[in-house]
Amino acid sequence: MKVLVAVKRVVDYNVKVRVKADNSGVDLANVKMSMNPFCEIAVEEAVRLKEKGVASEIVVVSIGPTAAQEQLRTALALGADRAVLVESNDELNSLAVAKLLKAVVDKEQPQLVILGKQAIDSDNNQTGQMLGALTGYAQGTFASKVEVAGDKVNVTREIDGGLQTVALSLPAIVTTDLRLNEPRYASLPNIMKAKKKPLETLTPDALGVTTTSTVKTLKVEAPAARSAGIKVKSVAELVEKLKNEAKVI
């Protein structure tokens, strides 16, 4: 079965971003960019499905600027077979991304689409679910276990109260949570091999998708800063402060 994996180029998770002085956004000049961590987990899961003989081909797709080729090459080095870049320099909202992914799904006809549950830049947690609505496929979000069995996939989901397992008819959408797997690192020979794997570039226009949005960002501000407090010397002093100063116990 064919598996489609969507990956996003985002600011590296170790970077503490700063808001621009004109409040137009965050400053991404010269900061390290990486594959969104949840997307790495998605790629890893697809590769494991291929290693188990469940997946026959892994197509990885990214929607973003030319530079997102870097993240696609990383996915190829991790084991994806071919890549598709839908090139756009605009800051696209989740719905636009889901529409573009829907167009790629129509072309590729995968049985399973795996995405990260959220991107660590916009923190939206929407795209997989929206793709579910647009394709009409079932969705297993926040997955910590994925088992394909015949024409179904069982997905165990991390929910507020614990874990929930659902059975979805294929084709289906899965979004990854942190405990699904631990992504591997790409080996040097695989990085070299990835350079020769096919990478196709498309545009929203060529896919016939309009990416206009009903939401606009008016401003981006730094959060209210918390001022550092004090160090106490003993447990007794801590308890005294919590009782008499903070009055929280």
């Binding site: 909202n93 989740s94 719905l95 889901a98 923190d123 939206n124 947690n125 929407q126 795209t127 997989g128 679910q129 929206m130 793709l131 579910g132 609505a133 647009l134 969705q139 979000t141 926040f142 989901r157 991390e158 929910i159 507020d160 949005s213 009903t214 939401v215």
Partner: peptide, 23 residues
């Protein structure tokens, strides 16, 4: 924005062809 709301509401938004504003 619980795991339920996060699960079904984006699906509602896309079905209505509108963006969702999260959290």
């Amino acid at each position: 924005a619980t795991t339920n709301g996060k699960n079904f509401l984006p699906r509602v938004a896309a079905q209505l062809d509108v963006d969702q504003i999260s959290e």
